[in-house]
Design a protein around this nucleic acid. Structure first.
Lengths: 202, 202, 202, 202
DNA sequence: TATGAATGAGGGTTCATTCAT
DNA sequence: CATGAATGAACCCTCATTCAT
């Protein structure tokens, strides 16, 4: 897919990310991308087979990274043999997810918006991803319940709550209201989740 | 805007809602709408100035209704002089919001997806709406805190949490995983929120 | 396929025939066709799904007609119970084929050239058509042989000779050297074929 | 035109012949040719000024060869002072032409298809060539007529018949139905032509 | 000379919108 | 008001050709 000049490829990807973030996939014209990248129309097609391909290329990189980190990290979200340890792990998880998102803010926004947006290329991929993440969280909630630290009537529903809190917070505070103190947000988010799950304090 | 035959207008709106929900705004062609409505291409423009206008028309109706009910209802979300009363009001609020959504599921989905979706016509409108709702919730949280029933370090952030929980739950359980028991969901949602806000039980 | 205004459709077909004949399918641009037809670019697509479709449309009409007449007529090419009758039938067949071709000269040329031309849309169709015609002729030659009027070592090869003579003559005298006396040509062609097949004169 | 490395030039020509035969001139991309030849895009233009030039180069070589042999050989097609000698010469001519064609089958096919195909680069060249060949044949027919061995009302028309028989047979039996016994074909072709021209047997 | 990245003029097709009937 | 044919501005993508290295 990717052509031979890494500089040109990077320009194209950079321009595409900017344009997709600004106008969305559909409204972004290839001519927008190439003119921002400073190359000709034809050059685009030396690097990517189509407008859709560059989009997938951009998303796939991010998805792979997020998925890997999310899976690794989520395994430890409610780890611990005391309320203190559990809280520490929740905080660490939130921190790491914030970092991943902040380092990939533009792409995260593209994926998020195109994933939810109707007719978006990623509707299915996005909703599958959602299910995977929610299942992962549910498993961890179940472990916490088994160990007697957490309480819930339905771990599946709780998992959706937790995922929704993460995602909405990331969306709102990173993309819409950008001036929030992330440290405070992190503490409150951990607190809200753990209270919601009735963490038995030490 | 609207032409004189309410039947034709309703057909067009109905068809547009169906198509927008199915394919999204961008991918829906005016020809899709008119052929589903059983009228000619030209007739469309006797009723709506453009494809965008029928979209706004559809959304505005829903927004007005939701906004009105949301505002009315939200004023009472944490009302009450006891934990029991507060919980009752939270449950009632959730119930009513669920009903509004379910009665307008198609339009709700359109607005939600197009509002978040990048390049969506409603990016701004949607994000303004979000702010309005979040502010409303924040005010109620503040009241609850003042009255000594609720606790939070930052009512604004809590409001985002609450709104996120509502919206994500509605999205996920009404649109993605459609077979959830809404009564259980409602109870758990109320419980999660109230625990998260440290409701002082009677 | 065809749109609703027969006048516009006819203009488009007429223009397409002219352009295809002049420049060939590949080099003819849709814009050539519409500008010659005096309609806009978009109008073309109200009548034909694609450039290829109008081409097929044009060819199919001619093919159907030729095939029908050819099949009907060929059944009688070597009919007769005397050399005189057979010769009369061969002459009549040639006449009729000449007429069909002359009445559809432009389309015939298009089909002929695009059929033979490599990469032409009709390579396969054309070669199938060829086989059908040659088989038809072979059957008639076989009948003539059985009845003892004609002689050949291999009716299949003779059929190819006959078809080749027809086609090459039509091509050369109708399209390349246009000033030939068709009556003389017809007589000579019949004579050549019948001598080639050793018609036993009465 | 041609660059300095005969190996590279030959690779390009070989690849071009293969591709032109397979896909036709228009549908063959320069990139097809260079990738089959194993050289870079730019190298192509060190050897040939354009796609059209390599095509002409290929055709011209073949045309020169065919024309030379055809002219030499055709001078003797109806040579001889007896029916037996004439027949022998016709057979020999057919044999030689078959050999030339079979040794250059790919190029022959290209020239034939592109020459007839509409918009082909060689429409004019091809039709001139045709006229030259037909004139050559006509002259020989006239000689045969003068010597009293052959009979025809119009040597020009007979020449077209003869050329048509050659060409169509070559096309059909070498390119379409490839499993014909060429010896039988040769004998029948000679026989058909000579009967058609009323060769006075000894 | 060989390379192959860059070029950019077009071409086919779509579809929201207009307007004469 | 209803119709639906006509419009034409875009937009994605192709590919022959160039040129700096």
């Amino acid at each position: 897919m990717a052509g031979p000049d890494p500089g040109t490829e990077a320009s194209l990807i950079g321009a595409a990310v900017t344009m997709f973030q600004e106008k969305g996939f559909q409204k972004t014209r290839v001519s927008d991308v190439v003119s921002m990248a400073g190359v000709s129309q034809g050059t685009f097609y030396n690097y990517f087979k189509s407008k859709e391909e560059i989009f997938r290329h951009i998303c796939n990189g991010f998805i792979a990274e997020v998925q890997k980190l999310f899976i690794e990290r989520t395994e430890h979200i409610f780890d611990g043999d005391s309320a203190t340890e559990i809280r520490k792990n929740v905080l660490a998880t939130i921190d790491e997810l914030f970092v991943i998102y902040m380092e990939n803010l533009a792409v995260a926004e593209i994926l998020f918006r195109e994933g939810i947006g109707n007719g978006g290329l990623f509707k299915e991929i996005y909703e599958d991803l959602l299910s995977i993440f929610i299942d992962l969280i549910r498993e961890q909630v179940e472990k916490g319940v088994e160990k007697g630290f957490l309480t819930t009537d339905d771990p599946g529903i709780s998992a959706v709550f937790i995922f929704g809190l993460f995602e909405r917070s990331l969306f709102y505070f990173l993309l819409v209201r950008r001036n929030t103190d992330l440290k405070v947000l992190r503490d409150m988010l951990a607190d809200f989740i753990l209270k919601g799950l009735s963490l038995k304090e030490d």
